Computed example of a mutant assay.
Amino acid sequence: MVNEANGQSEEADAIREFWRGLGLPGLIDVHTHFMPQRVLDKVWAYFDAVGPMTGVAWPITYRDAEDERLQRLRAFGVRAFTAMIYPHKPGMAAWLNAWGADFAARTPDCLHTATFFPEPGAADVVRGALESGAQVFKAHLQVGAYDPADPQLDDVWGLLAESGTPVVTHCGSGPVPGKHTGPGPISAVLARHPRLRLIVAHLGTPEYAEFLGLADRYPHVHLDTTMVFTDFTETLAPFPRDLLPRLKHHEDRILLGTDFPNIPYPYLHALESLAHLGLGDDWLRAVCFGNAARLFADAPALRAA
Rank of each mutant, 00 (worst) to 15 (best):
L256K: 10
F232E: 08
L130C: 04
P36H: 03
N97Q: 08
G21K: 11
A45V: 04
H202G: 04
Q8H: 12
I15M: 11
P52A: 14
Y146N: 02
P148N: 06
R69L: 14
A161G: 05
D281W: 07
W99Y: 13
P206G: 10
E131S: 15
L279T: 04
I15K: 13
T233H: 11
T61N: 11
L130F: 01
R241T: 12
F296R: 10
A49N: 11
R106V: 07
F116L: 10
M35H: 05
P120N: 13
A49D: 13
M35N: 08
A75K: 11
R38L: 03
T61P: 02
N97E: 02
F47S: 05
L198N: 10
L212V: 06
L243S: 13
E210I: 08
F81S: 14
P238G: 04
A301P: 02
P52T: 11
E210V: 07
L196I: 01
R63N: 14
G55Q: 13
F239L: 12
Q71G: 14
D242W: 10
A101T: 10
G178Y: 03
E251D: 14
G164A: 00
N97C: 01
E10I: 09
A98M: 06
P151G: 03
R74I: 09
L40T: 07
G100R: 01
D124M: 08
L279F: 06
V228R: 12
W19P: 04
L223R: 03
G51I: 09
A45K: 12
V176F: 14
L256H: 13
M53E: 11
E17F: 06
A292W: 03
L203M: 15
H33F: 03
A293K: 12
L96V: 01
F289I: 04
C171Q: 03
S132L: 07
P240Q: 15
A134T: 03
G77L: 10
N97L: 01
T226A: 15
I28A: 01
G257P: 15
H140R: 07
E210L: 15
G280T: 09
P59E: 15
W99D: 00
L190I: 03
S273M: 11
G91L: 09
G100F: 01
A12V: 06
L190D: 02
A104Q: 06
D64K: 12
P185S: 06
E251V: 06
M1Q: 07
D147H: 03
T205I: 12
P59H: 10
D147T: 06
P240C: 11
R72I: 05
G133E: 00
T115V: 05
L96T: 00
P52E: 14
A293E: 07
T230R: 13
R72M: 11
M53G: 00
S9P: 01
A14K: 14
D282N: 12
N262R: 02
R294G: 04
P118G: 09
H276V: 05
H31C: 06
L40M: 15
E17V: 07
F229V: 14
A5F: 07
L279I: 07
D41P: 08
H193N: 02
A49L: 10
V56Y: 08
A114Y: 02
E162W: 00
A94R: 15
G204R: 00
L214W: 08
L268N: 11
D224C: 05
